[in-house]
Design a protein around this nucleic acid. Structure first.
Lengths: 343, 343
DNA sequence: TTGTATGCGTTATCAG
DNA sequence: CTGATAACGCATACAA
């Protein structure tokens, strides 16, 4: 071991100042009952000696890490970036750190991530679920240890875990109704794993809108894929092969909607006149594609803030009764040219 | 404290089995010199009792966390997503965990992130610098403590920190030469903070290409901004106001290039015929904009892998001499319609 | 306001 | 192969 110098501890500071380590510890934690002058002196010498509190020891003693874990399907979306920014702001303001990981949409990796969070003893966990997660047993160890687990966006019904999300059914209802109002008679819906509330609810909202407009639900107009760019291209090809094409498409996310649109346009389809298209999420890409994509906007930043506040609240008021179990946030339909037939 | 049950420790397991805690510890760490049967028994009872190793204690004892820190300017780019995926793969295979944070392009936040990493005692640090970072003093504490710090993409010249990047000057030279070959006489360059190698080098490559083509460098054809979407729009407006417009633009990233292009097109400029445009990074957006954007591609995944391997190597071969100080990765020009005038 | 003493849960050393 | 024991560095109950 060629350690340059051994780490400075509170004992080293205590020795140097001829006081007890306890006083040093208290001073550095800004404990109220310690003499102002000695406190100042201790802080100063600690600085001078290059002291760094050993979080391992401190955590061991306090049995808490001040770290919040975050597990999301993917990091590289604008929505998730906003969520994380919101979470970070709140956590930083409350002296917590954030431990981030992504499941890449697989339950296997989600479980691995959860285990890493467990091993590293996060004080709380914020989760948005992967596509194929069928159960949430991997979060049981947290619940058993009283570590709050909070779901956001892609939630899971569970008494032990608060949930934060938007009214996906209502949003999808609005999108579909809008397409119908624009004259669409055969609206297709492209979405993802029905295991996830966000996609199941959007399908439900789509169905409800059809029903309310006296349009019979047609199973063959629903495509379930992974909403990737490639899946959008494939879906478009499938549509192009249909003898009786849809005249409207509601895609459950923007990037898939965009690649689908591109492929249709290349094949000579006029959007919105032959087929009107709408997406979901209000990704910046929606304003790059021509015609600009109609979509649903909801604020990730706010969702992140709410999630972080909620976990902190659980941590601070550990033994209190928490009535609020779910928080529903606002979303809004943004109509653009990809679906505008009537002006 | 209403802790459901106290955490199970190796002592609890030892008591139950009437053996020593030392043996339990060894068995759980798969130490070779422990009886196969007792080992099996210990592992089984640990499982049954819901034992979870206390990483605080373990880390304290071992003086290492098996956590690698990662500080990046932003998480929400495709490039960074690839980098992170590469890092994660390598780290996971080597039993390390990843602690991610973003500086949001400010040195202030970068310093805060570094401090968090320090406090949480990461074993190594991977960094891509923020726009306005003027020095790397905030990484000194790591170096002093022999914690390896490795820069990638946005690097900083420093003897103590290995660096991984692409040859930005060469890439920019190729882009600029390409535009010139397409007939551009007045190529504009839009880039960001010259504190960062990636932007300084790209400007240098741009200048070199001009020089080699006997085009005089014109200060007024260089715009330095933050390469955001908004900056792209502003730059376009500035261009539209110019009496003597450029006939080519090389933008140092794709999202700024795209918003700039959009604004120009809306104003009636024909791309590529009035102005040819090229970006940098090969973001998916480049294939959404019409005409598709010429750009430079480089593999983030690979860069992540290399960075992670390097940090692990430093950790494993702690006291060895490490000759390789920098790694330069490959990049390639991808020509698309936004810059194609000659076919 | 300060000091003393102890334990947090592991791992490593040394002895058997 | 196993056990006893001593750190690791900090925070707190209790005593002064």
């Amino acid at each position: 071991m060629s350690k340059g110098e051994k780490d400075v501890t509170i004992y080293d500071i205590a020795d140097k100042l001829n006081i007890s380590a306890a006083t040093v510890s208290r001073a550095l934690k800004d404990h109220p009952r310690v003499n102002k002058n000695t406190k100042k002196l201790i802080v100063k010498t600690a600085e001078e000696m290059g002291y760094l509190s050993n979080s391992f020891a401190s955590n061991l003693r306090k049995k808490s890490s001040n770290i919040i874990g975050l597990i999301v399907p993917r990091l590289n979306s604008n929505f998730m970036a906003d969520v994380i920014a919101g979470i970070e702001k709140v956590l930083n303001n409350n002296n917590y750190n954030l431990f981030i990981s992504q499941s890449l949409e697989t339950m296997t990796k989600e479980i691995a991530n959860a285990n890493a969070m467990l091993v590293n003893r996060v004080d709380g966990l914020l989760v948005s679920l992967a596509y194929d997660t069928t159960n949430i047993d991997h979060f049981d160890p947290f619940i058993k240890r009283q570590v709050p687990v909070i779901f956001f966006d892609r939630v899971f019904e569970s008494d032990s875990c608060p949930q934060i999300y938007i009214d996906n059914q209502k949003a999808a209802y609005e999108v579909t109704s809008h397409l119908i109002k624009q004259g669409c008679k055969r609206v297709m819906h492209i979405t993802a794993s029905q295991l996830r509330n966000v996609y199941a609810d959007r399908l439900a909202g789509y169905k409800k809108a059809l029903e309310d407009n006296a349009i019979k639900f047609d199973e063959s107009l629903v495509i379930i894929n992974d909403l990737s760019r490639e899946a959008g291209i494939q879906a478009a090809q499938q549509i192009l092969d249909m003898p009786n094409k849809p005249d409207g498409i509601f895609v459950a996310n923007d990037s898939c909607a965009v690649s689908c649109m591109q492929t249709l346009i290349k094949a000579g389809i006029n959007i919105p006149h032959d087929i009107a298209v709408a997406g979901f999420n209000n990704d910046p890409m929606t304003c790059v594609i021509e015609p600009n994509l109609t979509t649903v906007n909801y604020k990730g930043y706010e969702m992140g803030e709410v999630a972080a506040k909620l976990v902190i609240d659980r941590l601070v008021n550990k033994n209190e009764f928490h009535p609020a179990h779910g928080v529903i946030l606002r979303s809004e339909l943004i109509v653009r040219e990809s679906s505008t037939r009537i002006t």
